[in-house]
């Protein structure tokens, strides 16, 4: 059983609130005494995922389980899905439009950042049905 279980609805149409779920998780991790280096890895990977859900999938759900030795973040959306996951993982590759780029994202760094900071990244996606991203960060 996890020490802490959190669930969030990530709104797809609210760019202001994007990142608020990650912010909550960050605060909870701090309260639990997790090291700041580990908190940052969880925060960056989850935040990138949250942004992805907002800009590509019209929002979704974030389910977070924090254990003594790791965190498991699951991001579930019912968006358009990822056609070619290998291609999407390539740094610099992006399907984001101009509007998203103007917001400071869509540089093709989201998934590479998530891979860089999470110890394990699992992407399950079906075109037209949605995507589930699971990220595990082991605490040092």
């Amino acid at each position: 059983m996890s020490a802490l279980h959190l669930e969030f609805d990530v709104a797809g149409d609210n760019f202001l609130s994007a990142g608020s779920a990650t912010d909550r998780v960050k605060n909870e991790l701090r309260k639990l005494g997790v090291s700041s280096a580990d908190i940052r890895r969880v925060a960056i990977s989850m935040y990138e995922g949250e942004i992805n859900m907002v800009i590509h999938a019209g929002g979704g759900k974030a389910i977070v389980d924090i254990y003594v030795d790791k965190s498991v973040v699951k991001l579930i959306d019912h968006g358009k899905g990822i056609k070619d996951i290998e291609l999407a993982m390539k740094p610099g590759y992006s399907t984001a439009n101009e509007e998203i780029r103007n917001l400071g994202f869509g540089a093709g760094m989201g998934l590479p950042n998530m891979k860089k900071y999470a110890d394990e990244l699992i992407i399950e996606s079906e075109v037209g049905k949605g995507t589930t991203v699971t990220m595990i960060v082991n605490f040092s």
Binding site: A18, G19, D23, K26, E48, G106, A107, G110
Partner: peptide
Amino acid sequence: SDVLAYVKDQALLITGLCNPQVIRTAVM
């Protein structure tokens, strides 16, 4: 995304981008 990828211990962000996610990124 580059800030998230490259920042380590920099406490100041200098930017010309102006939207709420700039604040969120700094928080992260």
